[in-house]
Design a binder for these strands. Sequence first.
DNA 1: ACCTGAACACCGTTCAAGT
DNA 2: ACCTGAACACCGTTCAAGT
Lengths: 227, 227
Amino acid sequence: MRVEGEPRSRRDRPAKPALTRAGIVAAAVEIMRAEGLPKVTVRRLATDLDTGPASLYVYFRNTAELHAAILDELLGTIPPPAAGGDWRDRLERMLTDYTVMLFEHPSLARSALVTRPHGGHYLDLVEAMLALLDEGGVPPGQTAWGLDLLLQFGTATAAEQGTRQESLDADDQWDALLDTVQSTSAATHPHVAELAGQLVAGAPEQRLSWGFRALINGILATPVPTS
Amino acid sequence: MRVEGEPRSRRDRPAKPALTRAGIVAAAVEIMRAEGLPKVTVRRLATDLDTGPASLYVYFRNTAELHAAILDELLGTIPPPAAGGDWRDRLERMLTDYTVMLFEHPSLARSALVTRPHGGHYLDLVEAMLALLDEGGVPPGQTAWGLDLLLQFGTATAAEQGTRQESLDADDQWDALLDTVQSTSAATHPHVAELAGQLVAGAPEQRLSWGFRALINGILATPVPTS
DNA sequence: ACCTGAACACCGTTCAAGT
DNA sequence: ACCTGAACACCGTTCAAGT
């Protein structure tokens, strides 16, 4: 029995669960959902898991690997494409789901741009996208290279817009760009001045959708070099 | 006269130049060229400028703003497009120059994805690109939105490939992806298995060039929604 | 207005020592 | 093999006090 005021002994603290890769990832996802990826540091994670930072290096070689594992976890939440309908629409839906998911976690998008995902859920996503491109009759070489183009666009857009959303600073940068564009002299930068309105026009969803469609059209229209 | 072994007095040390925005950026670029952007920290920069870190906050609100200033400096080194010839070729040349420049400084590419550039040299680059798209008869709406697509692709590619090049870790990630793709079972992921070779094929320059051409084709083929 | 030392509140990673 | 405390070598940013 515990005596009031006496520190709990190791014995009657809630049993400290053994460390496992899956357990660490789960704890990391929890912190990320509650406080964002930047709070998922090795030190913070170790504190939550009631251990020292060095212990985590038994399971992850570095922070990048930990982030990759978190990403693959989230990729598992993307629904597979619906069965019928236009392949383009279904492809765009899947890419939008992917992008929106990353949009909530811009720092994860940033890390995905740098560290290539390669987990099981990523493989499933790629398989589904390749199947849709194949269904659309896109030649194999264009399918293979186009896949990267599509995912990269989604990832980069999430990194860009998502960050802008989460940081006040980035808002200021946006305003600064607007100022720059709108105060551009027609004498020195005639094209910028003329297109000023359109450069910043359009809702983000519209631009995202247009981007995916432009990419699909471009992939279809552009043969890869015959090695 | 200095006495041997005696520390120099403030008086006969080389005159400490007054801090200016331009001087700080110049020092930052110097560190970056010699040791890479990750070494360009507020503290390191302050040390090189013989002052304390707090002093730099008089000129830059934060590190992101400092990075943006460095990027604009480098953008000034991109040659303007040649006068004659096919507008597509000249556009691709300019985008390739942009991407190759960022390729040498992947962390700058990463920061450009997140913090929108808005300096004078950036504006010049945008003006030149818009002029080429206009010359090619691309409708204004498609030009405005397509510009982002093209620059984003270059930036993201530089961030991705450049980082892979600079870090040993990223090499391992690449190998891991290769392993994953090549050992993929045809039973569970038939499309990945079938395209395995092509997914990872092609020299980076070929893929970059194909990407730019596919983007240009897609931009030309895809009207923007009429508001 | 510009500049600064010192402090605040953190980081990732490695190492030697334990079990 | 797994786990750990402590150390190493750093970070960005703010604040109160100067000039």
